[in-house]
């Protein structure tokens, strides 16, 4: 019986020692594995799809993902990104009317927390790949541009179906959002 008690005592002692060691010398850190740029891009795209700046409004009701043809000029101005954008990030938004093949696009960046020169270099690199025909560079090309001038978090490229409404006329379209975070 004495041996049982001794064994239990030793086990208890070891457990107590481990608890004391963990409490005093161990600190846990959580590492979140995620593709942050893509998650941010999805969130921002959802904000854009309901933005009163560009969506069609009828009787005070905002129509999600239904863009107002007459407000599309505001998208090109990029004022939306002054209000909503992640810091140290850039965005290219392209809205295409699939029936008339009309395009609207904007290139904007969020608030930057580092040297302006890097941004200029980046956009020069990007500009060399962005043509007037709105043929946008691939994510690989964008990432190459980012890697040249920044330590990069990478880029994301997503596409969403939208409607473009002009009065009673509704066309099918797409909204493509390309983003990169530095």
């Amino acid at each position: 019986m004495g041996e049982i008690l001794t064994s239990l005592f030793v086990l208890g002692l070891v457990a107590l020692l481990m608890i004391i060691l963990y409490q005093n010398f161990t600190e846990f850190h959580t590492i979140v594995n995620e593709y942050g740029v893509q998650r941010h891009t999805i969130a921002l795209a959802n904000v854009l799809l309901t933005s009163s700046d560009i969506v069609y409004t009828e009787d005070g009701m905002q129509k999600r993902a239904m863009f107002d043809y007459n407000k599309m000029g505001l998208l090109s101005k990029g004022e939306f990104f002054d209000k909503y954008s992640y810091p140290d990030a850039f965005y290219i938004i392209i809205v295409r009317d699939l029936e008339t093949e009309e395009n609207w696009y904007t290139v904007k960046n969020g608030p930057m927390s580092f040297e302006h020169q890097n941004v200029v270099q980046y956009f020069k690199c990007l500009g060399s790949q962005l043509t007037e025909a709105v043929e946008i560079p691939s994510i690989q090309d964008l990432n190459e541009c980012i890697k040249e001038d920044f330590s990069s978090s990478g880029g994301a490229r997503l596409s969403f179906p939208v409607g473009i409404r002009n009065g009673d006329d509704i066309h099918m379209g797409t909204m493509e959002i390309i983003s990169g975070e530095f």
């Binding site: 846990f28 850190h29 959580t30 590492i31 979140v32 995620e34 998650r39 941010h40 969130a43 921002l44 959802n46 904000v47 799809l49 309901t50 009163s52 969506v55 905002q62 999600r64 909503y84």
Partner: peptide, 24 residues
């Protein structure tokens, strides 16, 4: 440890604050 870590909580709060702007 994971569900209470400041890293997870800050990520959750940042995501929720952003997505709240998507509500019309």
């Amino acid at each position: 440890i994971v569900s209470n870590s400041p890293k997870v909580m800050s990520r959750d709060l940042a995501g929720l604050a952003t997505i709240s702007a998507a509500s019309p």
